[in-house]
Design a protein around this nucleic acid. Structure first.
Lengths: 247, 247
DNA sequence: CGCTCACCTTGATCTGCATCAAGTCGTCTT
DNA sequence: AAGACGACTTGATGCAGATCAAGGTGAGCG
């Protein structure tokens, strides 16, 4: 998968200044001096696809940024029903400042590399480094916006609209730079997508087939596809038909 | 837009130290000096039930705390489907630091009094007053948690579980102090509740009737009720059956 | 006082998605 | 190469909640 392009070398000491998420992560606003302080307390940690990174309620020893790969946040009800409540892509942050635990499970959907800081020293740094706490507030607010958009999806959208919105989000977040008809890889199984969208895996599968039949998506295999008709995909999301389309 | 706020009787100068939301709002951690600075730039604004407080996309001149009453946050899709994405109770905060607009409408569900600050001076204060920004991060994180819980409700719960969860939340947030079989008043119409829960108003009405028939709720009128069987209500939420139940 | 209108209730019917079921496909194991 | 297994697809059927429809109730007002 393209997101893992740099995979293995990452776990060795890498300069923050060369970090692929340098300009989007929690450290985005740090100057060189601040970066040096972070550099001293950071460590890279890798997880294989499927591994649980943090269990709900576990003592949180680290806070982390996702460097590469994709992780999921999910909540489970008593009787086993699962709802995914977030997707972590590179540059996203894990950890509540001022809390010792999380109220959801964090799981590696693909192989994942984290840039981690021990919680205590990080919180100390947070107080002394406004650039970090400012960025953290920004990121929390962005996440809140995203959560609210997702509430609309979960509460009001049809299965078709849900899947279209999911694909659209993937497309937008994946290739921020290069547009064009790029091949995409689904980072999640049908079941995981269903869990994110509040659907069943069968419904997700049927909607994928439908998009294929309509010529909106074109699959090269079960996980790899290109968006053949981007306008139709946007139309199918049910959202306002803006989104900065090319004229 | 009709942001006419004529009634200003309740809203005479009130000392922050006597404010009912003093210990829970964004100013909760402020010391006396900081409170004085806030006092200087604050103003009270009142809205009648049904009035729109802020339209999605409007320039945000103020940030505010809810002093009394209840406001709703909602998003509307192209074709008119509405999803409520938050409920603001006293002490809750309106406004994204660092943003000039909101991506949802804020509406007064009951008569509402806000404690407002002009955005610019407040943001200046934010930089100079860590106690405020710390509290703001805390509140944003709490909201994020609540949003994620709501995602589980919207994505996975049945109509019965949704309504039970809603009532349970109201009960918990309303009388934090006095427990016992207190009479509650629904702050929202059936339609608004439906909008919050991702249901239709008819389904909400039917579920209320069901709870009445089962003796879980006891209505004195369409809006006023008491929880007659709290254990059964908790059971009906579908959540973990903890919550400090008496043994 | 009776009219209106917003809000709510209840019944009948419909439908989108869940559920149940039976495969296919590709990869890994031995 | 055969089998097993996990991921996925597709079909048949069921049902929770949406939709359509027809009142009921009470506060405000001429």
């Amino acid at each position: 998968m393209q997101i893992n392009r740099m995979s293995v070398q990452l776990t060795e000491r890498m300069k923050c200044s060369e970090c692929p998420i340098r300009h989007r992560a929690v450290c985005a606003r740090c100057d060189d001096t601040e970066l040096e302080r972070l550099e001293k307390i950071k460590s890279y940690r890798s997880f294989r696809a499927g591994e649980t990174i943090i269990w709900r309620g576990d003592d949180l020893h680290h806070v982390s940024s996702v460097v590469s790969g994709i992780a999921t946040l999910s909540k489970t009800l008593d009787d086993g029903r699962v709802q995914m409540v977030g997707l972590l892509l590179p540059s996203d942050f894990i950890g509540h400042p001022g809390r010792k635990t999380l109220d959801f499970d964090v799981t590696a959907a693909t192989d994942v590399v984290l840039c981690s800081f021990e919680r205590k020293p990080f919180e100390k740094l947070l107080v002394e480094t406004p650039h970090i706490s400012q960025r953290l507030v920004e990121m929390a607010m962005d996440e809140l916006d995203a959560a609210r958009d997702w509430m609309v999806l979960l509460g009001r959208k049809t299965a078709r609209e849900k899947l279209a919105s999911f694909i659209q989000m993937l497309v937008q977040r994946s290739h921020i730079e290069g547009s064009g008809m790029q091949e995409m890889t689904l980072p999640l199984t049908r079941e995981e997508i269903a869990s994110y969208l509040g659907l069943t895996l069968e419904t997700v599968s049927r909607q994928f087939s439908q998009f294929r039949k309509e010529g909106i998506l074109s699959f090269t295999d079960r996980r790899r596809f290109t968006v053949a008709d981007h306008a139709a995909l946007l139309e199918a999301t049910g959202d306002d038909a803006d989104g900065g389309v090319i004229i």
